[in-house]
Design a protein around this nucleic acid. Structure first.
Lengths: 342, 342
DNA sequence: TTGAATTACTAAATCGTTTTAGCAAAAATA
DNA sequence: TATTTTTGCTAAAACGATTTAGTAATTCAA
């Protein structure tokens, strides 16, 4: 059951495939193909269920209508929602998306970028892992449509869409202070990622601005791929009564940390917010139904995804004016629930 | 900065592109290309950073090394984890994945299948929405590598990987009965989906086998795209004191229902498991940290994803023996937490 | 009534691979 | 020495579209 090609339609009607191509691309008028023939072509193409071969089109035109997406992990709802939005917005304009999960591993992302290059994608949306500057720089210099999301590298000039992480953490920390918390910890991952770094800087600044001392021992930095027990260990050190690091609040920089953290806190028999207050970045379902619903920094995921696609498609369609690089910083909102007391 | 092609390497060395193609495909020996030339080709290809154009390869060979995936919604962690596993297993064998979220909408899935056909994907992994029989049948008859996951259509002969939903619901319901619950409801979606249907059938059979009557008014069927308040309404009818439908346990057929349901139950000021016991299908993070950690039917998502890819690649590589269709039914496990009492 | 313009189309090149068929030179065999 | 075999390579077609440059037939203008 071979697929119908342009040529099949042409043979069927005794015309050239040039003509068929013109008609099916809506250029019948432009190339003065007679009404009558146009209709016949359309009819036969429907009759034979013609489906254009996008691969052949891609080879000829150099455009595949495909974009490559590299994120940390599509199974993580944060990226799931982002990916969903990107897929949807891209589909609106006739673009498909090849999804790649890098696991924050630069070697994987290198391979994925290479694969996407070979696949001749028209552009890239990437949430770059640490130590991937070289890859990103090479892409950016290669003059390929590219948008970074969630993080970026300050020294690379490139379209990017992020949230104001510093501000978000600053406000979250301030909220904890306003609620009367005196000693606040921060559990985070991998400070080589600029977004994470900015979160911790915002946290520090809020402490300083309110006259508190920043205690490095209250900042727990875990590796990206952390296990439940590593979070448990960090939490334990921060909440047990006789620990010299005993705190009354924790700011979690990711929801994965927060979810594991809440599990640990519960396991230790402590109550939120009575024994310890918490605020977390990101807004998974889990936080709505847990013992004490969690106050969160909510990121505008839909807007990030949608804007990323729009900027990317803009670049794809007008490759010329790559002069105006866009660096978009979106605002987050703090959703106040019960985990900080009242 | 044009990309290096086979021809560029050939010109650079003064040899034919045929030769270059042979060498780079590891067929130097087979076609008796001299060691010396082989080395030179390899060297120049590295020097010019040659990246094969997979689009051109695809056009020539008819194989794109790409698979199309259609699921309900990649933002839903259930499908996120599944998608992740599929991406990972496919990558192992050099295959890329185009992700499509159908929102359980047959018209969307129709368009997506068409798009994937045009993209010349080598095979399909699909979680088919209701009313998409015709599309699936057409694919299956078209003799294209295809694997269905999560659901299927009984009347279509096709590879499929599902879990034993009947058995899972039967055991879940039995667990509730063993824990002393007398009146058990089921909140579910869209019984036109066979997996959902089987869950409710398993629930009914468990009731019958233990001498209970099946009360249709205790089975709440919501539309697939339900709002929080629709769940709230169903829950309210089942748990309020003076309702004639008052139950002491609910089996949720999806985690989306369960999460919304727990929110509603809390909002009504009721306690789990004291006032009402619950069991839910699927195992999102939320269930681990909520007021009373939820007993769940856990599906082997990784195995589903991995097996789907393996069967699909088997079909892609041996298109001939499509005679042996595989219908795999995996077991679920019931993870007992605190939501049913003790 | 001739030259120009318009109409309605087509031939052929091209994109970057793969793959078949074949060729010239060297080596082996008779 | 003549023939066959082997070695080491190449030309060209093909995949299915797009696109440029053209051409023959008709109509129009002067």
């Amino acid at each position: 059951m071979k697929k119908t090609s342009l040529n099949d339609i042409a043979l069927h009607l005794g015309v050239s495939k040039t003509l068929v191509s013109f008609v099916l691309n809506g250029k019948g008028k432009e190339f003065r193909i007679s009404e009558e023939i146009c209709k016949k072509v359309l009819a036969v193409s429907k009759e034979l269920n013609y489906q254009p071969n996008r691969i052949a089109q891609g080879l000829r035109t150099g455009r595949t209508n495909t974009i490559g997406l590299i994120i940390a992990d599509i199974a993580n709802p944060f990226f799931g929602i982002l990916g969903r939005e990107i897929e949807q917005e891209a589909a609106k304009f006739g673009y498909r998306v090849i999804f790649c999960s890098s696991d924050e591993n630069p070697e994987k992302s290198r391979q994925q970028i290479e694969m996407l290059q070979q696949s001749q994608v028209d552009g890239y949306i990437i949430s770059p892992p640490k130590d991937s500057e070289d890859q990103i720089r090479a892409l950016a210099l290669g003059n390929v449509p590219l948008v970074l999301i969630d993080r970026f590298f300050p020294e690379i000039e490139c379209n990017q869409i992020t949230v104001d992480n510093f501000d978000a953490a600053y406000r979250a920390t301030n909220h904890l202070l306003r609620m009367g918390r005196k000693r606040i910890a921060n559990i985070t991952v991998n400070l080589d990622l600029i977004n994470m770094n900015q979160r911790t800087e915002g946290y520090k600044q809020a402490l300083r601005d309110s006259g508190h001392r920043v205690e490095e021992s209250l900042i727990k930095v875990l590796p990206f791929s952390h296990e439940n027990k590593e979070v448990a260990k960090a939490v334990k050190d921060l909440v047990t009564k006789n620990s010299q690091n005993k705190v009354d609040a924790i700011l979690f920089s990711t929801s994965k940390l927060g979810i594991n953290g809440i599990e640990s806190i519960s396991a230790l028999g402590l109550k939120i917010p009575d024994d310890i207050a918490i605020v977390s970045f990101d807004n998974p379902d889990a936080y709505k139904i847990c013992v004490s619903p969690v106050t969160v920094v909510n990121q505008p995921l839909k807007e990030i995804g949608k804007t990323a696609v729009q900027i990317l498609l803009g670049e794809i369609k007008h490759p010329d004016n790559h002069a105006k690089i866009q660096k978009i910083i979106l605002k987050t909102d703090l959703i106040i629930r019960k985990s900080c007391g009242s």
